[in-house]
């Protein structure tokens, strides 16, 4: 009866039935919901080629390092990271373009939760890698550290970063944007206030990657991306935008511009 009712409604609403998602190896009570809300239809498979790396012990629930890596899977158009049992589940979405379907960053967790990366290939199929993160909790509802620093507004948007040449031929770029990334859940009534989008382009203007972020990304987001930056390009431009309309533009210069190392064109 339960199944019937929901199927009926889904048919009514969307006009097309979803294939039932595979059952979750982690047994999360939210899995079915997550498929529907975060992955919004499309076929879903669990796939070892999509890796999620988290530490075995969480030291700081407000700063949990996460790496989502779907480089083993060809033709990825979108990489979504979510955590089922977080109060806000959707963490970020990377649209890699020609860059690698790879992202390293830090996130907040409210409690132990599955952390998943879903890589969508051109055929619309979601390839999901999952890991269970064991954590004590509290990361989302603790006020941002910036709460007691009345100067957050003077440093907001300041960006620093570095670019390295990676063995794969891509450029590994890591940058940090100063921002409180308030979740709106802290008990001090601070409203949600976070960077919602980050665009990375080459200094020549070529789009490299775009990133959509949500509340669970840690304060002062620190992001690692693998970008197809030509050796002739000396820098990347980063444009971040927060939900109050704040725009933060910055440029990170590639060190090989100043060095004598000649990197052959690949």
């Amino acid at each position: 009866m339960r199944l019937l009712a929901s199927t009926f409604l889904l048919l009514l609403v969307s006009g097309a039935a979803y294939a039932a998602p595979p059952s979750d190896p982690l047994g999360s009570p939210m899995w079915a919901d997550m498929v529907e809300r975060v992955l919004e239809g499309g076929e879903v498979v669990f796939d070892d080629k999509v890796k999620v790396v988290v530490p075995s012990i969480v030291e700081n629930q407000a700063q949990v390092p996460v790496t989502a890596d779907a480089r083993a899977l060809p033709g990825v158009t979108k990489l979504v990271v979510f955590a089922d049992l977080n109060p806000i589940q959707h963490v970020l979405t990377l649209t890699p373009g020609k860059s690698a379907p790879y992202i390293g960053f830090r996130m907040k967790v409210e409690q132990g939760t599955p952390v998943r990366a879903a890589a969508q290939t051109a055929d619309g199929v979601w390839h999901v890698g999952s890991v269970y993160l064991d954590a004590a909790g509290g990361g989302c509802s603790a006020p941002a550290m910036a709460r007691n620093e009345e100067s957050w507004s003077t440093t907001v948007g300041q960006t620093q970063g570095r670019i390295w040449r990676d063995i794969s031929g891509l450029a590994r770029a890591r940058f940090r944007i100063r921002h409180p990334m308030d979740t709106g859940l802290a008990r001090d009534n601070t409203p949600a206030f976070y960077i919602e989008s980050v665009k990375v382009t080459s200094s020549a203007g070529a789009p490299l990657a775009t990133l959509q972020m949500f509340e669970p990304v840690s304060e002062d987001p620190t992001v690692t991306l693998m970008l197809p930056l030509a050796p002739s390009d000396g820098a990347i431009d980063i444009e971040g935008r927060d939900i109050n309309g704040g725009l933060f533009r910055s440029q990170i210069t590639a060190p090989w511009r100043q060095s004598n190392v000649v990197v052959p064109r690949g």
Binding site: E110, S141, A142, R147, N148, R187
Partner: peptide, 15 residues
């Protein structure tokens, strides 16, 4: 969840 976490966290967190 928002409400639940608020209730929980009011007990100990914060400065």
């Amino acid at each position: 969840l928002r409400i639940a976490t608020l209730i929980v966290c009011c007990s100990g967190l914060g400065l």
